[in-house]
Design a binder for these strands. Structure first.
Lengths: 255, 255
DNA sequence: ATGCATTTGTTCGTATGTATC
DNA sequence: AGATACATACGAACAAATGCA
């Protein structure tokens, strides 16, 4: 008959109203919110309450405010920082492990390549080729440039897949993975061989995308991730990932 | 030579300290934080500043405070609510459409079924069977019970896949999809036929999971989602989804 | 079951450093 | 360069809510 109620704080209502305004487009990125003093009259609450609401919105990456700015808090363009933060803390809390992350990445990045193989334009193909050549060029010199071009290559794949959600998911998962084991990788002894191998694998994937072979692109991408990161996993965890490597014979894993 | 600096607010430092304490285990779920007045002396700041920090931690789902509680704010168990919220707002940010969502869901839920087919235990299998029968039982009577059992079925699949991240992703995407087009579905004329059809499809997926046929489970799940929601999409969008329906012959789509 | 002490939710006032016009 | 308006931060205060004796 009756619904249970939760006492709702004043600042929550303010957050909801501002979030709603951003959501429905009445507040677009770059626009300014009224000053805190203005907001306290509009909402009919005290300054502290307004500030608590603004803090929450700020921690969600939706607005930013600077002292002394006469224009008031600014509405930020959409960003994935909140997603980033919440996923990182899940990882830190060990609710999600490296194996979970890699398995998920094999799924999403694999599917991204599958879609990219179908929908890529020739311009995108050229851009991928360029990114790959930049990777090759910076193997011997610049570790940072290599990593940058690597990211660029994956971004181009995700973009070619034409799914914004997939794009964001790939981006977040990739960076969280790196954040977890970057040190181990850069400290590895045969770093240069690893980089060269990575180039070779990227070339294979690119070939499949060029040939518009979605299944090959997907499986190569998954295999790449698996073999690149498998050394950092326990044996039990490796088994969870191999399931996604069906190889060319799809039904082989039933036996 | 020098790094650019960002002015750091007092409340941010407090948030970092408390987050750190939760992370490294000195604050475990269920434990209480000191009262606000105690915290202001410990951190050497005013009460407002302490409260701003607590609001942020609260919006991140890490602590909760009730008025009048002499024990102070409580440290919450790790939860995925923060991830939930940030993913929802990502979807609402118009950059992601229904087609993106469904395509993504076909990927993740497909893979979840694939993994579940391999790793499911017999107990989990029985639980899935039970959920399916509950769905069948409530077709004619209770729309809410049907939806509930439907969710339970999918949750069991995700749980059997043994990947917490995948579990959360599926949950979020599913709820956002529903939130987007629930009305259209419940208003549909032949609602009962739809529900019966849904049961039939779930049974097919369950058969594949029981037979430990990962590829069949994956493709059936994807096909189910596609055919269930395709009527609500434009024709151009439908094309983006069909790519993921390779059918039984994996290489057929190259031709 | 009833007060009592304490805590949170919220308000108001004030001082200080800062960014913009 | 100065004036203005701003955010940051502090402190005191009151009402409502909670837990405990």
């Amino acid at each position: 008959m009756f619904e249970p109620v939760r006492p709702v704080r004043a600042y929550e209502l303010i957050v909801q109203q501002i979030e709603g305004a951003i959501f429905d487009g009445s507040l677009t990125p770059g626009m300014r919110l009224p000053s805190e003093r203005e907001l306290m009259t509009q909402f009919g609450v005290s300054r502290s309450t307004v500030r608590e609401a603004l803090r929450v919105l700020q921690s969600e990456g939706k607005v930013a405010s600077r002292p002394g700015d006469p224009h008031g808090p600014v509405v930020l363009p959409f960003s994935t920082t909140a997603l980033h933060k919440s996923m990182s803390s899940l990882v830190r809390a060990e609710t999600v492990g490296l194996a979970d992350l890699l398995q998920f990445r094999m799924m999403t990045e694999g599917c991204a390549n599958q879609l990219a193989a179908v929908f890529r334009t020739s311009q995108q193909l050229a851009a991928m080729q360029a990114a790959l050549e930049k990777m090759r060029a910076s193997v011997k010199q610049d570790e940072a440039a290599f990593a940058y071009s690597d990211v660029a290559f994956h971004d181009l794949i995700a973009e070619a897949a034409r799914n914004k959600l997939l794009q964001v998911a790939n981006d977040v998962v990739r960076s969280v993975v790196l954040q977890l084991i970057q040190r181990k990788i850069t400290q590895s002894a045969d770093r240069e061989a690893q980089m060269l191998d990575s180039c070779r694998r990227h070339a294979l994937v690119l070939d499949a995308v060029r040939a518009q072979d979605p299944v090959a692109a997907r499986q190569l991408a998954r295999k790449h991730i698996f073999e690149y990161y498998a050394p950092y996993l326990d044996e039990a965890e490796v088994g969870r990932l191999t399931v996604l490597l069906e190889g060319s014979a799809e039904s082989a894993d039933i036996a």
